[in-house]
Nucleic acid binder design. Structure first.
Lengths: 288, 288
DNA sequence: ATTATTAAATGGATCACCCATTCAATGGAA
DNA sequence: TTCCATTGAATGGGTGATCCATTTAATAAT
């Protein structure tokens, strides 16, 4: 291998992905051919193709969580693309929670266990972009939580109930010590545990994605006004008791009334319901 | 401006984001300072920071759908990063459905209306990565659809019902003409319309994300075996009638029994339930 | 007035480097 | 031998220069 090839000399040959220039040339050649076939213009960009191929390997089971992709330099050569464009693809997959990139020798791109937080990000973006409204989100949350109560009553195991109990105790402590903001964190975790007790991760994911945003509003409200839900742990204990007795009707009623009172608290001061306040990344804790 | 600066000469000066080298130097300098402050190591990578800043502008309402970001070369200079790393960030945001990149003069990075298909991708990835199971997905779908029926009975407008009626007619036509695969497409649309009739886009998004995958299984089954659900449109009409009469109990019962019979059909041949078959991108129609 | 042509702006992609981090191999000191 | 410091290679992180393809507006030719 020569130490230094002349600049601008396209060296690659056995490429899997034809590069931009080659593809463009192909296209023009096809266009000047006799038949006006109008085949779908190959607008797809390189990085999209790369992402798709990796996802394909994933869906096919060829790649599994924990697996490592070839090193960037090598993979780029295998695909016949520049390292930069490969990195664009890897970055996208990393942001999507599919990969984790690790530095150093023995580093590389590792397939991740699915990151359920991704759905939260989708919800946040949809809200930021105005595709969904806070009202829709709150409404959906109420309905989905009602469903969760039914399923939790049917499926919650002892360990789930214990975890909820432990959460209430943490909430109690935070209340006593006046750590109101920590109490909001506890609330978020409460709903997460409740959703987990359904035994269905899809539902748990959905619940968490809507709850995360809701809690940002609560957080902003509490942080600005200093007010907090009264008799919270008391209500939680009542609810947990109903859940333990598998009393769907009671548990459902208790939760619903609690959600409504929280909603009233939030709506007292319409200014606090500002999207910008809630979505502003003032608080990394809720983010993660 | 000189036509050609000497290579490797760091030219940038008034930068917003300190680049890697500068930051690293800063860090080392801080480390050799007197006080062992142990301030949080600046491990965050450039592209993450960029993504975050853009999302921040979005959440703050400074950027809105339709807005255009500065040109890559300019924005890179403003941020004090290389164009390559800026592109990595833009790519990620594009894959996230936040941006659309358009070529040519008057092109650029435009903020998009939120793309609800993103949640479908999350679900697909979670399934590919084994974070959620097909069982959980099916179960969640049944429960969420039950909720949808309740809300649809309460909120469906005339236009929604008409759209469902039109969908059934298309399904009927596809059935008569033996286009079984088109009929599957119609089914997916049916659930989409049903979900839309709740008037809640959050719920509609959730329903579509679980339905899309479900329909891939159905599609694979129909494509491989040629069998199809009997008396489909008949059942649909019955359901729609119940919905029109706001008869929650009946509509709910009808849908549930239909979902169960579809499930039985799918489970007849366990092989067809293979994840890989369903997720393989054989059929762009279901993708979009 | 209409139609080609041209030029500029912009994203798409590549190449050749350089840096920082990480870890295994190596080698010297206890 | 055992342990610890050094070194070096592999790898991701990042930069800058350069070229291509596409798009659009301005300009020239008809």
């Amino acid at each position: 291998m020569s130490t230094k090839s002349s600049p601008r000399a396209p060296q690659r040959s056995r490429t899997a992905l034809p590069n931009r220039r080659e593809r463009a040339t192909d296209h023009r050649a096809a266009g000047s051919a006799a038949a006006p076939t109008f085949k779908p213009i190959h607008t797809r960009r390189t990085f999209e193709e790369i992402c798709e191929r990796i996802r394909e390997q994933l869906a096919l089971g060829v790649l599994k969580p924990g697996d490592k992709l070839p090193a960037e330099r090598e993979l780029a050569q295998q695909l016949g693309v520049s390292r930069n464009v490969l990195r664009e693809a890897l970055r996208s997959l990393e942001m999507a929670g599919v990969l984790r990139l690790q530095k150093g020798v023995k580093g590389g791109a590792f397939i991740q266990q699915g990151d359920t937080r991704r759905m939260n990000e989708v919800m946040r973006d949809m809200l930021s972009l105005g595709t969904i409204s806070v009202r829709e989100l709150s409404e959906a949350r109420v309905h989905v939580l009602d469903l969760v109560v039914q399923l939790a009553c049917a499926n919650a195991r002892r360990a789930d109930l214990d975890a909820l109990e432990a959460n209430i105790e943490r909430t109690e402590l935070a209340t006593r010590e006046g750590r109101l903001l920590d109490r909001v964190e506890c609330s978020r975790e409460f709903y997460k545990l409740l959703a987990a007790s359904t035994g269905n991760k899809v539902i748990a994911m959905i619940v968490d994605s809507v709850t995360e945003i809701h809690m940002r509003f609560v957080y902003a409200k509490v942080a600005s006004s200093g007010v907090a839900m009264a008799r919270l742990t008391e209500k939680r204990r009542q609810f947990l008791a109903a859940l333990s007795e598998r009393n769907v009707a009671l548990a459902s009623r208790l939760l619903r009334s609690h959600l409504e009172s929280v909603q009233r608290m939030l709506e007292q001061d319409p200014g606090a319901m500002s999207l910008h306040v809630a979505l502003a990344d003032v608080q990394p804790g809720l983010r993660r």
